[in-house]
């Protein structure tokens, strides 16, 4: 502003009000055209750049202790088979794995064990749930039936939640998991509104045992989401952040199946590498009774339901 003052006023010396107007309009048009060009570049750039800078390649290969004591083949118990397949998948670089979950709704009894196991594993506070079991009542009392649909994050191939993040705090990993960086998330809630499955929730900073004589230690222990150490206290992350199921990534890294899979009493939840044609999940996902939730939304979920 200051420097401009010293130069003689507008370059086109306005003589009449019309000239004055014209000079102003030309300058404004120039500013707007410049701004529009910068904006277009920013938009194209923003749409094209990948947000994730996850490591890939050899560095991501995990040599897990092999399961040698028990022979495992296609006919073994599904948990053993999935454990073996996990070991095989983790021996590949991250970009060659593609995690999938298959849920056999015919085997789900609606016990909610997976929901609670998940809460315990990830030390979830009130208001945050990663895997609720959707419970529908069908029919009219007294002739009713119940239908149960466990709903983890679908880890969509076309996630509607990641492109909306204004600060690049959430992205799709090379192995298909949709991750959140708690240290970057500002907690605006936009991703939460963008998910048609309501799979994202926000940590409001509450504790279940608040208002009782003492906060219980189990709520104050850190969780290990994304392989880091998160202790909920004060205003520190993940308090205030968007939180979601991440297929227990921190467990996978050390050779354990997701908590909901191991805790399912009916063997209704299957997990594995969709890129391995021999895996149990690849086999099940190809069954004729396989569906995905809200397929019309075009999100291409990686959670498959057998009905």
């Amino acid at each position: 502003m200051k420097t401009n003052e010293n130069t003689p006023s507008p370059p086109v010396k306005p003589e009449s009000p019309e000239d004055f107007d014209r000079a102003a309009f030309i300058k404004a048009a120039a500013i707007l055209a410049g701004a529009a060009a910068v904006g277009a570049v920013a938009l194209v750039n923003g749409k094209r750049t990948k947000i994730s800078n996850e490591p890939t390649g050899e560095a991501t290969v995990r040599k897990l202790p092999p399961m040698e004591t028990i022979p495992v083949d296609r006919h073994s118990d599904p948990l053993l088979r999935m454990q073996k397949e996990l070991e095989i998948a983790m021996a590949k670089p991250v970009e060659q794995r593609h995690w999938m979950m298959v849920i056999d709704t015919r085997k789900c009894v609606g016990c909610h064990a997976c929901t609670i196991a998940c809460v315990a594993e990830n030390k979830l506070p009130p208001g945050v749930v990663y895997r609720p079991v959707v419970t529908e009542e069908i029919g009219r009392f007294p002739n009713v039936a119940l239908r149960f649909t466990p709903r983890p994050c679908m880890q969509c191939n076309a996630p509607p939640c990641t492109p909306v993040c204004p600060v690049k705090a959430t992205w799709k990993r090379p192995d298909g998991i949709v991750a959140v960086d708690y240290d970057k998330c500002i907690g605006c809630g936009y991703c939460i509104t963008a998910c048609p499955y309501n799979a994202r929730t926000r940590d409001a900073g509450e504790f279940y045992t608040e208002g009782t004589p003492a906060l219980q230690p189990y709520e104050q222990e850190p969780n290990f989401e994304y392989g880091k150490h998160w202790k909920r206290e004060g205003h520190k992350s993940p308090i205030g952040n968007a939180r979601k199921c991440q297929f227990c990534l921190h467990r996978l890294e050390v050779g354990m199946l997701p908590e909901c899979v191991t805790s399912c009493i009916g063997r209704a939840t299957y997990f594995g590498d969709g890129n391995d044609p021999e895996s149990l999940v690849s086999e099940l996902a190809a069954k004729p009774n396989a569906i995905r939730l809200l397929e019309e939304k075009g999100t291409k979920p990686n959670v498959v339901y057998l009905i």
Partner: peptide, 23 residues
């Protein structure tokens, strides 16, 4: 006030995602 982490609002300036309507 609506932000979960209100003191990170500056991240809208330092690392904006111009694919997002909010940015």
């Amino acid at each position: 006030f609506d932000l979960g982490q209100m003191f990170r609002a500056y991240r809208m300036v330092t690392s904006p995602n111009f694919g997002s309507m909010m940015a």
